[in-house]
């Protein structure tokens, strides 16, 4: 009995510590945003500003086209995720189900592609997009992000499809579906949690990109994404860290909202009841 209590205590202590480590930077971001810039460097630091500047959000939205940036980020992420999901659902399903000659090495090849750092591809992609006259267009980062996302999501989805019993699509085919019909009518609905998790992952990857946007979009102000826009708030001599923090919070909010919205799909368990 006593041992159990001690174990629980240790467990909770661990959880609390981990949460603290994870949450602290976010907390500090909020504190920074709400403080007067002049108070930021005081020692000892204050853990909550005496007079929080709640008006900062409205103020920076009036000063900068933050909504436009957010809209561009959203368009880019939605476009990249849509393309990625279509490609990786088909690729992941094939890798999971069909024994193709060389299928294994093909899978490994995709896996290697995801080990390459994104920055390595910036220059070749720039060359390609220049030829396609896509520099400055949102399509450039949509396609660039898709090349980043697809290797990951293909493997995530392959793993998810592997957990779905083959008999499910066999039943669908006996019931009159084509292989593609079985995928669309049975496998995809059953995979909703896996699809949600994968799409979310791709969305975050696209949303948090800076390198590609900086390279392809710098000269097209109207197409700036949020991350690119925020860095322009950093001046050469003085930077208003409070304003930058406030903008960062605004950029993080949509991701938070999507997490909350998708949570029930992410929990999984939809395949329960297929068998036995």
């Amino acid at each position: 009995m006593r041992r159990k209590t001690t174990q629980h205590a240790l467990l909770y202590a661990g959880v609390v510590l981990t949460c603290a480590i994870l949450v602290f930077p976010i907390y500090w971001l909020v504190v920074t945003a709400l403080s007067e810039p002049s108070q930021l460097r005081q020692l000892p630091p204050s853990f909550w500003p005496a007079e929080p500047r709640w008006g900062v959000f409205g103020q920076i939205m009036a000063e900068r086209p933050i909504l436009l940036w957010l809209g561009n980020s959203a368009l880019a992420a939605i476009g990249a995720v849509t393309i990625s999901m279509i490609v990786s659902v088909l690729a992941g399903y094939s890798l999971s189900r069909f024994r193709v000659r060389g299928g294994q090495s093909l899978g490994l090849f995709i896996l290697t592609a995801k080990m390459l750092p994104a920055t390595l591809l910036v220059i070749p992609l720039f060359g390609i997009f220049r030829n396609l006259e896509l520099i400055g267009s949102l399509w450039s980062i949509i396609l660039a992000h898709a090349t980043l996302i697809i290797p990951f999501t293909t493997w995530m989805l392959k793993g998810y499809f592997d957990t779905i019993p083959r008999e499910l699509e066999q039943a669908a085919m006996v019931d009159g579906c084509s292989p593609l019909g079985a995928l669309v009518r049975v496998i995809l609905p059953v995979s909703a949690p896996g699809l949600a998790a994968t799409a979310l992952y791709g969305f975050v990857l696209s949303w948090s990109d800076y390198a590609y946007a900086r390279t392809f979009l710098t000269n097209a102000q109207g197409n700036w994404t949020a991350n690119l826009g925020i860095t322009t708030m950093k001046g050469e001599y003085i930077s208003n860290w409070s304003d930058i923090s406030a903008a960062s919070i605004l950029v993080a909010l949509p991701i938070l909202a999507i997490y909350l919205f998708l949570e029930r799909y992410l929990v999984g368990g939809l395949t329960a009841g297929a068998e036995k």
Binding site: P165, E167, L168, Q170, A171, A172, V174, V186, P189, V190, A192, L270, T271, A272, G273, A274, E275, K276
Partner: peptide, 14 residues
């Protein structure tokens, strides 16, 4: 035009 009953039933969970 045949119907099959699987060992694990393979009911459509959704």
């Amino acid at each position: 035009d045949i119907a099959m009953v699987f060992q694990n039933y393979a009911l459509y969970p959704h």
